[in-house]
Design a protein around this nucleic acid. Structure first.
Lengths: 182, 182
DNA sequence: AATCATCTACCTATCGATAGGTATATACTA
DNA sequence: TAGTATATACCTATCGATAGGTAGATGATT
């Protein structure tokens, strides 16, 4: 077998499709065709579309957070922030895709409940991570100011991905994050 | 007739749906049901979905730019920027919806060509508008720096809408735009 | 009379989802 | 150890609903 785990292959395919077209951007049939199985087999692994979408967002968040590492392991504030920015930069330039949860967040109002919760969790956990990194600042900021800075950075990065994608030039991403103090 | 123009009513309904669920978030059938006509009648006004989507994005951009007014009419830089921010704030808090072109920009890769172009135009025209407002700065910045600031502000506002919507609290929008120099 | 707006009635393609069947592998039991 | 049971991972076939789209008739407006 080419892939060790068919369920993982399904998630990989679905993730790419979702990061291009959102929640309605992937279908059991299209995933099945690409995975070389029948759509019923995709239903076997993920009974409903809500299940698949939720598993997708959950895996994305877990991998993202794991890849970020521990907030305390960075020598400086700048190093931690650059490390964080690199994760979004990589999603855009290497994958050539939107952030899954940025995409789902835009479509939030039309998502099923379980997927809403999973999408919300991505942002809450990212804010938490950044708040901890921001504790490394030379001049200590208030917890409230740190939270504000964290929120602002995430919003800026999500927006930067949208602009770079729409204007078809990754340089716009760099423009946005240049001179970013927070 | 309740509405003066059925085509306008169709666009209104489609816009709301698109700002909730993106390009695949509206369908001829659902629009027709809400407008009190048959789906064939929607096709009469907008032959294909690409036509409808393009008309949607075009009208949105025109109305947005018209409502922004002339960049030179503001007394100060701060007044111009606040005026601009207010347009996004209004979309979020009054309409309770995403920015149409922010949504479409996220789905950019899965859009038909004509709609891609229309979405791109929204951002290009917004950047132009902001660049002109930024000429009002007390300390004159280079054209390149003004452009960078414009891009950054738009990205931040689009991202702020996503976060506020996903975290179900408009206060997140205010958090993001607080202390925004650019 | 001619144009416009809408209708009925239909098409093909695709959607998510389900029922029921088929191998294969592992695990338990007599 | 031979037979039985269970779980895994698929399959074919089909369902009702919905997608975008079209042809042709009907009624209204000018």
């Amino acid at each position: 077998m080419a892939k060790i785990d068919k369920a993982t292959e399904i998630l990989d395919i679905a993730e790419r499709m979702a990061r291009q077209g959102g929640y309605s951007g992937f279908s059991f049939r299209e995933i099945a065709k690409e995975a070389g199985v029948k759509s019923a087999s995709v239903h076997y692994h993920f009974p409903t579309k809500e299940d698949l979408g939720t598993a997708l967002a959950n895996r994305y968040t877990e991998q993202f957070l794991e890849s970020l590492g521990t907030p305390s392991e960075f020598a400086s504030l700048q190093e931690g922030l650059e490390h964080y920015r690199n994760h979004f930069r990589k999603a855009l330039t290497e994958d050539g895709l939107m952030c899954l949860c940025g995409m789902l967040g835009a479509q939030y109002q039309s998502l099923p409940d379980a997927l809403r919760r999973e999408t919300r969790l991505f942002f809450e956990r990212n804010i938490d991570w950044l708040e901890r990194v921001l504790e490394h600042a030379d001049e200590p900021a208030t917890p409230q100011a740190r939270r504000e800075a964290a929120i602002k950075l995430i919003a800026t990065l999500e927006g930067a991905m949208i602009l770079a994608q729409t204007l078809e030039d990754d340089a716009y991403f760099e423009s946005v994050i240049a001179n970013t103090t927070g």
